[in-house]
Structure formats: structure tokens, C-alpha cells
């Protein structure tokens, strides 16, 4: 199935458990795809803005992702830093679910 321009498939909804995160690589880029406990999906860039650690190894708590290395926190719905050491907000990306597929607008 072809996707609208700029949107790519990041996986299927069953790929992520509730209140969890997975890694999605697209070309040279890496993303973190989140599923909340109320079954909503979000996507941010995949690496912590502090020291380029993959956030997919981290812990999802509500709308917060905690980095697995230094426990820095972001609100993955807005990209805002919630706890240092990261000092720079993280990029978020639009998401839509179509026919059970998670689509991300990467551009």
C-alpha cells in the first residue's frame, strides 16, 4: 500500500506493547515510536539530545520517556525536556494510524 507523500510506515500497532517504546530506523535516521496506556501513538527522534543514546531502551511512564543512560526525561507528546541532563528539547513527528499501520511524517 502506498503512503501519502512524506509519510512512512514505522510498523504495526501490535508491534508495541501498551506504555512502551520501540526503535524505528529509516535510512540514516532513527526514531522512537511510543504507545501510551490509552492506546495513542507518538514519535520522536530516536536519540537523546544529551548523549545520543537510543531512547527505545528507556522507560515510558505516562507521557514521559526516561533515557536509559542518564535518566534524563522528555514529554514525548511535546518533546519538552522534563529532567536534565538533556538541555535541548527533542523533535517530535506527526503520526497517524491507518489500517493497523503506524505512519510517521518524517519530513
Amino acid at each position: 500500500m502506498s503512503q501519502p507523500q512524506g509519510w512512512v510506515e514505522a510498523g504495526e500497532i501490535g508491534d508495541i506493547e501498551e506504555e512502551d517504546v520501540i526503535r524505528f530506523d529509516y535510512g540514516e535516521r532513527t526514531f522512537a515510536v511510543y504507545r501510551t496506556s490509552d492506546d495513542k501513538y507518538y514519535v520522536t527522534e530516536g536519540l537523546c539530545t544529551h548523549e545520543k543514546v537510543h531512547l527505545s531502551g528507556g522507560l515510558v511512564m505516562g507521557h514521559i520517556i526516561e533515557c536509559p543512560k542518564h535518566n534524563g526525561r522528555f514529554d514525548f507528546t511535546t518533546g519538552q525536556v522534563k529532567k536534565i541532563p538533556p538541555c535541548i528539547n527533542i523533535q517530535t513527528y506527526p503520526v497517524q494510524i491507518k489500517a493497523g499501520k503506524i505512519l510517521v511524517k518524517v519530513d
Partner: peptide, 10 residues
Amino acid sequence: WRWSHARHHT
């Protein structure tokens, strides 16, 4: 010390 310890873990 928050930053010192972050470096210690890195």
C-alpha cells in the same frame, strides 16, 4: 555533582 555523576556513567 549531578553533572559529574552523569559523566561517571557515560
